[in-house]
């Protein structure tokens, strides 16, 4: 419990001190201040297992959306974001030669996050910028699986404070380039391009999971009948488990500062809760429009 805290504080302090000591150097090589709005859409694939109700993995494709507000400064960058992933999953039921069972679950996964990264010049090269900081990630899952009767609704939450490390590689094309492909002569104009890799590693991992037994019948309390009150009563917060996420992005900008981004996002988490664990992983491939809000 204490070790991750010291690690997080150490990492944040390290990145803060580094960026101040080398502030002069950064201003020469870092970003100009820029505000971007990113609108993303893509495809996803989710997989989860909730031991409170089933030992089986549920897997399936989904649709991913995201909206992000990004601020890039000379020494730092931050991102506010919200990203839902709606997936239709099927249980990984073994094959039967008598009568095949099937079960499906709708998984709605809502991520809200804030990320703050500072430039680490000591570890950076001219075309490779290393950044370190933290990500605060809050996730709400809503799962509906009618075959589980009164446990049909699952609604676990995660709150993770994560160490964030990012490597930005400038792969801009500075000169016009001609490519000959059989009979085609393709002219490639100079372009600002960037390839980045980011890893988020959970340090403080909270999860909101069912208690020993749970069901989602509405509580009957006077005139008020509320399913939500039942969830609030039968679920409990725990500080345990882990979460890791990575993101690989390719960005391309026009001279206006607008651009697009193609990203692959991987997120994996385990939440033991107080009694029975929940495990989930998601993959997303997203296309984002980058809108320069400085204009």
């Amino acid at each position: 419990m204490r070790k991750p805290l010291f690690f997080l504080l150490g990492a944040l302090l390290f990145s803060f001190l580094q960026s101040h000591v080398f502030a002069q150097a950064v201003s020469e090589t870092g970003y100009a201040k820029q505000k971007n709005l990113l609108l993303s859409a893509g495809l996803g694939y989710a997989s989860f297992r909730d031991f409170a109700t089933s030992p089986l993995f549920y897997n399936g494709p989904g649709i991913s959306l995201a909206i992000e507000k990004q601020t890039l400064r000379q020494k730092s960058e931050n991102v506010w974001g919200f990203s839902p992933l709606i997936s239709s999953t099927l249980a990984g039921i073994p094959k039967s030669n008598y009568y095949q069972t099937s079960a499906s679950s709708m998984l709605m996964n809502f991520d809200a996050y804030f990320q703050y990264l500072r430039f680490v010049p000591q570890l950076s090269l001219d075309k490779l910028h290393i950044k370190a900081g933290g990500t605060l990630m809050a996730t709400q899952n809503i799962r509906i699986n009618q075959s589980l009767n009164n446990a049909a609704l699952g609604a676990e939450s995660f709150v993770n404070l994560m160490l964030a490390l990012k490597a930005d590689k400038d792969i801009s094309r500075n000169e016009e380039k001609n490519i000959k492909l059989w009979f085609l002569n393709i002219k490639q104009k100079p372009a600002t391009r960037n390839l980045s890799f980011q890893a988020n590693i959970g340090l403080l991992n909270f999860n909101h999971r069912p208690s020993y037994n749970y069901f989602y019948f509405s509580e009957i309390d006077g005139n008020s009948v509320s399913s939500l009150s039942s969830l609030m009563k039968t679920y409990a917060w725990s500080l345990n488990g882990w979460r890791v996420g990575t993101k690989i992005e390719f960005s391309k900008f026009a001279s206006s500062g607008n651009g697009f981004k193609i990203a692959y996002v991987w997120d994996i988490a385990s939440a033991p809760g107080k009694h029975e664990a929940f495990q989930m992983v998601s993959h997303r491939i997203q296309y984002s429009l980058i809108i320069n809000k400085n204009k």
């Binding site: 039921i93 073994p94 039967s96 589980l148 009767n149 446990a151």
Partner: peptide, 9 residues
């Protein structure tokens, strides 16, 4: 009653 699933589905 609550609900659950066996390893065979």
């Amino acid at each position: 009653p609550n609900g659950g699933q066996l390893p065979n589905g």
